[in-house]
Simulated scan of single mutants.
Amino acid sequence: METVVVRKQGNSVGVTLPAETRIRLGLEVGQELTLVEMADGIKLVKRNLKLERQMQMARETLREQADVLQELAKR
C-alpha cells in the first residue's frame, strides 16, 4: 500500500502519485480521472470514454421512452 501526502496547490489541494503507480496504471500527464466519493474515502477511476458514451445514449433513450417504460411498469 502506497502513502501519498495532500499538498496545497493554489486554491486547491492535490496528491502526487508515485512514478511506479503511474506507469503501472498507464496514467498520462493531463489525463482526466473520475473522483468517486465513498463512505470510507475516495476512489480515482480512469475515465472510460466508450462507457460514458454508452451511458449517455442509455440516458437519452430512457428519457425519450419514459412514457413507454411507465406503461410497461404498470403491467
Rank of each mutant, 00 (worst) to 15 (best):
T16H: 14
K8V: 15
R7S: 13
L49Q: 06
R47V: 07
V13Q: 07
L49Y: 07
E32F: 02
E28G: 11
L35H: 06
E37H: 05
D40W: 00
L44D: 12
L51C: 01
L27W: 06
K46I: 04
K46W: 02
E37P: 00
K43N: 05
T16I: 14
R24G: 01
L33I: 06
E32Q: 13
L51E: 12
K43Q: 15
E28V: 05
L27M: 02
N11K: 07
R7Q: 07
E37Y: 08
L17V: 08
M38F: 04
G10Q: 06
D40A: 15
L25R: 08
T21N: 04
G14A: 11
P18Y: 10
V13C: 14
I42E: 03
G14C: 12
L27F: 00
K8C: 04
L17E: 05
I42K: 13
I23P: 00
I23R: 13
D40S: 06
Q31V: 01
A19Y: 11
L33H: 02
M38Y: 14
L33S: 02
T16P: 03
G26I: 01
K50N: 03
T21A: 14
R7F: 08
L33M: 13
L49D: 09
S12Q: 06
G14Y: 04
N11Q: 09
G41D: 06
L27R: 05
R7V: 13
L51P: 00
G41N: 13
D40G: 05
A39H: 11
K8R: 15
N48G: 09
D40H: 09
G30T: 07
G14W: 05
G14H: 08
T21R: 10
Q31F: 04
G26T: 06
V45E: 15
D40P: 00
L44T: 12
T34F: 10
G14I: 07
L25T: 02
V36S: 13
V36H: 09
T21K: 10
V29C: 06
L27T: 01
L33T: 07
R22H: 07
Q31P: 01
V13T: 08
P18G: 02
L35I: 14
V36W: 11
K46F: 05
I42A: 01
Q31G: 03
I23C: 00
N48C: 12
V15I: 15
L51H: 11
L35K: 01
G30Y: 07
P18A: 02
K8T: 14
I42W: 14
G41L: 01
R47C: 01
L33D: 03
E32L: 01
E37N: 11
M38L: 15
E37D: 08
N48F: 02
E28H: 10
V45L: 08
L51F: 07
N11R: 06
S12L: 11
V45M: 03
E28M: 09
R47Y: 07
S12I: 00
S12R: 10
I23T: 07
L25A: 15
R7E: 11
